[in-house]
């Protein structure tokens, strides 16, 4: 595996703080991941774990102040995005790097027809004339499988159903053939039958374009259906990363294992749930040592004081930040 493609997007030791009058909140605290061409990497974490803030940092969408990127790099084919001026960062956004948000209705312009919004991408960035741009917009709507695209291009976002609106946003994100697309909970607001359509569409588009897809979600099922590799976050930190099959079959971190044991599953009728005790900490009071220690069934005294390093467990690059990662990884999920 030494000849694997070089990473497309490589984030290392990212730290983001919010400095407010009520104190400093460390929302992201040492996040690392790497995404390769044609690959889907899932960023899995519960609410408040820092997934969206980390994505906004990479996209250059954080307001400074109150947000401050205090450490880390985010290299897109080697260029550090975090070192770019806001103007340069904006130029990268949309062209090389784009984002799909959870709520399409607030992300789209309500007073511009969908066709015009998509066409604008081509008039502004590609210098096309209005007519040619509109033709491209319709072709794009076709590509994300919006029925009767030519007619629907004249409609406004609120005239589309939730699922169709999400397709419009995907079209917007793909318009300029970006190298990396970050999808932040793209289906969380949708019904499960529509979610299945959208996730399939994303997989198909990715296979066509070879884009790198960073899929942000809290849903273990969506990750299992889509991701090649997974990075798990807890309280702003990376706690585990592995290819998807390894992660689900043999998690190397007690938190990941706890998540897998606690979700009800359609394929395991009648299996008891084993919950994780307690709840995730707010970023204003993250426990010392291993942030997971107050909830961890495996914790020992040193877990409360020593922060575990994020280390490699297997030649395939399974990594975990737990003092007992090797032992935890040794036991398959039952």
């Amino acid at each position: 595996m030494s000849q694997a493609a070089p990473p497309l997007l490589e984030v290392e030791d990212l730290c983001v703080e919010f400095r407010t009058t009520r104190g400093t909140i460390r929302a992201v605290n040492g996040l690392s991941y790497s995404l390769r061409e044609g690959e889907t990497l899932a960023l899995l974490g519960e609410s408040g774990s820092g997934k969206s803030v980390a994505a906004q940092a990479v996209m250059g969408l954080l307001d400074t102040p109150p947000a401050h990127i205090t450490r880390g790099t985010a290299r897109l084919r080697g260029d550090d995005l975090l070192a770019l001026s806001p103007e340069r960062h904006r130029a990268v956004r949309g062209t090389r790097l784009s984002m799909i948000f959870q709520d399409a209705l607030t992300a789209l312009n309500p007073v511009l027809s969908v066709g015009d919004q998509l066409a604008e991408m081509y008039t502004v960035h590609r210098g096309l004339g209005r007519k040619a741009a509109l033709a491209r917009a319709v072709a794009l709507m076709d590509r994300v499988r919006i029925p009767a695209a030519a007619r629907r291009a004249h409609d406004y976002p609120h005239q589309f159903s939730g699922g169709m609106r999400q397709r419009v946003m995907i079209a917007m994100a793909l318009a300029l053939d970006p190298e990396v697309v970050i999808a932040d909970e793209p289906t969380t607001a949708l019904d499960v039958t529509v979610q299945a359509q959208i996730m399939r569409l994303l997989r198909q588009l990715q296979a066509e374009t070879r884009m790198g897809l960073l899929l942000i979600t809290h849903d273990l099922g969506v990750v299992a259906e889509t991701a090649d590799r997974v990075t798990v976050m807890y309280a702003g930190r990376t706690v585990e990363s592995a290819n998807a099959e390894d992660l689900y079959a043999r998690p190397g971190h007690p938190y990941t294992r706890g998540l897998l044991d606690s979700v009800p599953r359609l394929d395991r009728l009648g299996k008891p749930l084993v919950p994780i005790t307690g709840s995730p900490p707010p970023p204003s009071s993250v426990p010392t040592g291993c942030a997971f220690h107050p909830r961890c069934p495996r914790a020992e005294p040193r877990c409360g004081t020593d922060e575990p390093s994020f280390r490699t467990l297997t030649p395939t690059g399974h990594r975990s930040a737990c003092h007992f990662a090797e032992e935890v990884h040794h036991v398959p999920v039952g």
Partner: peptide, 25 residues
């Protein structure tokens, strides 16, 4: 269709991409 659409948290049981899905909303 609800069963077919519900994602199962096991990458080894991924539904094939030509499995029948409901269309529309």
């Amino acid at each position: 269709a609800l069963f077919a659409a519900a994602p199962v948290p096991d990458p080894r049981r991924r539904a094939p991409d030509d499995a029948l899905l409901l269309e529309g909303d």
